[in-house]
Design a protein around this nucleic acid. Structure first.
Lengths: 164, 164
DNA sequence: GCGTCCTGGTTGAGCACTCAACAACCAAGC
DNA sequence: GCTTGGTTGTTGAGTGCTCAACCAGGACGC
């Protein structure tokens, strides 16, 4: 086996900073939501996606696709959200195998209550500290990396904000 | 309560792309390590940090600090690594409360075996797709965000590569 | 009709993490 | 010495995830 191509010093620096930032960022946002709104970030995103859907309902697998989540994960998650009263399951009228996840009024209210704090947190750690050029740059870099990871996935789910 | 400052369109775009990329990236790297080396990413990082330490040993809390990890998490993780034979616990000679985590030869070998694949994965999804300017930009942006999250933390643990 | 294969979704075991509680120990004051 | 308070590290319960196994129902062939 050939000697692997290790990272250059500049690459190592960038990688260490990036990966540390990444962990701290995810941790920070997750804790903020958990503390202030009693929900993990992933559940927040499920509620957001549902809030944007027509009738605030989606087939389980559509929801999983939009969330880049496995069916299993989503099934567990929706079970929790159902216990919390934020989502209901209904039978799919056109395919008896299927389930619909429906955002309840209580779920929408919980989302509406959680959103300002979450968006404020995102703004505070990210957008209020970066110049418009840096935001643009971050978007471009993210798109390039994402393209390499997920070549045929073009639909980006989930703005951080709830829908109408 | 005042109307929250929502994100601009450009910010929303950047955020969605960024957050989606982030999830996919973490997932990709974690799966690569789990598949090829039977260890989660966080355990890989513990081994890396230990491999760079003098005598390949560290106090638990130092290790936790370098890894930005809680004591509890580290304690659980080291218990697993000990089962795998990659790390040993020893008493700290100067403080009877303390424990030392010591990287074993088997642990070092496992790390050495895992490193090339991991670094190749990082290179493939990130550095081989970005220009040097973009790498520089990513590093700067990461540093700015990290500064806001972790104001007094200046030590960045963990290059992705094992030490001597 | 009937069989076969695929798809949608759920389930349960196992794993990594968090949080709170705890035991053991050090350090400082008296 | 003793007590008080902070530190170090572990433990156990609970949560969210993955993975593989599974059932139910659709889709296509015959």
């Amino acid at each position: 086996m050939a000697e692997p191509r290790w990272l250059s010093d500049a690459e190592q620096d960038a990688w260490r900073t990036f990966v540390t930032m990444l962990g701290a960022l995810v941790d920070h946002l997750d804790r903020q939501l958990q503390r202030d709104s009693k929900m993990p970030y992933t559940y927040y995103e499920i509620l957001v996606v549902l809030s944007h859907a027509p009738n605030r309902e989606l087939r389980m697998s559509e929801l999983a696709g939009l969330r880049n989540s496995s069916r299993s994960r989503l099934s567990h998650a929706v079970a929790r959200l159902e216990e919390a009263g934020w989502v209901e399951r209904r039978e799919c009228p056109t395919d008896k195998r299927g389930s619909l996840a429906v955002l309840t009024d209580a779920g929408f209210a919980a989302l509406a209550a959680a959103a300002p704090g979450h968006v404020a947190a995102v703004r505070e750690v990210l957008f209020d500290r970066l110049t418009p050029d840096q935001v643009k740059s971050l978007g471009e870099i993210s798109a390039i990396v994402l393209e390499g990871l997920d070549p045929d996935k073009k639909n980006l789910p989930g703005s951080p904000e709830p829908g109408r």
